[in-house]
Nucleic acid binder design. Structure first.
Length: 228
DNA sequence: TAGGCCATCTGGTCCT
DNA sequence: AGGACCAGATGGCCTA
């Protein structure tokens, strides 16, 4: 059936979305309840938050170009979907005709092609969602169910707010040598450089965010984006 | 069994 | 014109 059913089956003991929707601003400075380990920013999922749609598209396309449509073999309910990729050229040619002039099989081929594209698009979206899950301060592992999509998004939002608040708090502190280094590195990982073309990565122990956390530089994927 | 979550299909709209 | 994006509909799987 669902090709991803196995993934879904390992559902997390997801916190209620309402629970995730904490007023992060008011809580962030109090240490937070996150229990995750380290957060790595070395994956494409830590791309800056203000990529344009086109840029995001390019990044996703580069990162998740499916070599061959495995979806067709995924065993979905539509028995005909498995032929979609192999017949895309025929469908493409048929789309050049007026739809009213198209025969039933041609219309069907076109439909299959469109369905296949949509499947791929949704899978890319899920890959990005998995990337987001990976960097969330939440327990990972085979025995732990995945965060749901809505929970992932809400948790990510709060996590960003918490980090932002932590940075603001650090700014207020007298910057000693260690704090200054941490501050700089954290900024590098979280803030876009104006007109910049790359993003430096940091590795932050979330549990230490409050108490002068460790920062260790890591390699980071490069993201091309247009500065404001 | 109800409800939550998900994948897929589908038609419409927007964008390049 | 073709592809990307979006939202509604549908049906399957899983858990309480």
């Amino acid at each position: 059936m669902d090709s991803d059913a196995s993934l879904v089956s390992s559902r997390p003991s997801s916190p209620e979305p309402d629970d995730l929707f904490l007023p992060a601003r008011s809580k962030s400075s109090s240490g937070s309840g996150f229990t995750g380990g380290t957060v790595s920013s070395s994956t494409p999922s830590d791309c800056p938050p203000e990529l344009s749609a086109a840029e995001l598209r390019g990044a996703i396309g580069a990162a998740s170009a499916h070599p061959g449509d495995k979806l067709g073999g995924g065993g979905f309910k539509s028995s005909s979907s498995s032929t979609s990729s192999s017949t895309s050229s025929a469908a493409a040619s048929s789309t050049k005709k007026d739809k009213k002039q198209m025969t039933e099989p041609e219309l069907q081929q076109l439909r299959l092609k469109i369905n296949s594209r949509e499947r791929k698009r949704m899978h890319d979206l899920n890959i990005a969602m998995d990337g987001l899950r990976e960097v969330m301060p939440y327990a990972h592992g085979p025995s732990v169910r995945k965060l749901s999509k809505i929970a992932t998004l809400l948790l990510a939002r709060n996590y960003i707010l918490m980090l932002t608040n932590s940075l603001e708090e650090m700014k207020r502190l007298e910057p000693g040598p260690k704090a200054k280094k941490a501050h700089t590195a954290a900024l590098g990982g979280l803030v876009l450089t104006k007109g910049g073309s790359t993003l430096s990565g940091v590795r932050v122990k979330v549990s230490d965010l409050k108490l002068g956390f460790e920062v260790q530089e890591t390699k980071c994927n490069h993201f091309d984006f247009d500065g404001p």
